[in-house]
Amino acid sequence: MNNNLCLWWTGLIAAFLLAPLLKGIINKTKAIIVGRRGPKLLQPYYNIIKLLRKGCVRTTTSCGLLAWGPPVTLATAMIALLFLPYANQISPFAFTGDAFLFAYLLGLGRFALVLGAMDTGSSFEGMGSSREVQFAALAEGPLFAVLGFLAISSRSLNLSSMLTCPLPAQVPTVVAAVILAAGIAFVVLLVENCRVPFDDPETHLELTMIHEAMVLDYSGPDLGYILYGSCLKLWLMAAFVWLMLIPGDFGSPGLMMVLHILGILLSGVIIGIIESVTARFRFLKLPQFLLGSLGAALIALALTILTGRNLP
């Protein structure tokens, strides 16, 4: 195994190990901004470990699908992580069309979680699931527009090459399109991970939550799996956005690796700042916001088709 491939594996292991830290950074940032001391940076780790050691209470209403939600969400996030390029290395698992598998795996995780939530027969969880499938369905459009954008600008069909292609920095429209598309990808990140302004994970009013309302009836190892899975998913999407922004020919693989991890942790700070300065949008406005981002993504697509395609 050569050095670069070792670096790729390091990146993957870093994702598995550091993912909960990202959540810790978000919470710490939010606490600092409002002037609290806040939870420890490593608190998500403690939470997950504590939950895995606990006993579990399940509802008698369940017909069995409740138990399958957590392993499926966790497994899909783990498999999806295999397709990202770390340290500017093409993933050893890359194949033509893996971008679609990447997108649909996230869909499978969501489907399992929705069914798990509906298995409790609780109206809170019904509400959360209903909103979750609505926003997820509407977020598919922007996500695939971003994937199309990446495919066009890199002229390839696997996720690794899409995300590591060098950026023709001399063409301003292309740079503008990349920034626009990365912005849309960030919006998709916020929807997929249920962050403000789409969902507020910290609220204690269950009526206003989406993701957290869906997992109300999970406890113990089940909840631990879900927490870790959502950490992995956040890391995954943050890595996706960050890789879009850094051109592949920026520096040596080692430098890229460091930048990669720092960039993801930095995006935690950015999410924390956004959550501190904005409120959650009204539910009725969210679909319009998502359609707006689809429109913006289509503009980015049109820009690359018209200007970026014929570059050398």
């Binding site: 050691r53 579990c56 209470v57 209403t61 409790t120 609780s122 109206s123 109300l216 009836d217 113990g220």
Partner: peptide, 17 residues
């Protein structure tokens, strides 16, 4: 997970809601 849970109590209760 199931192996982990065998060491811990698993209870069935009505939906928390």
């Amino acid at each position: 997970r199931d192996r982990r849970m065998r060491q811990q109590p698993l209870e069935y209760k009505c939906t928390w809601d």
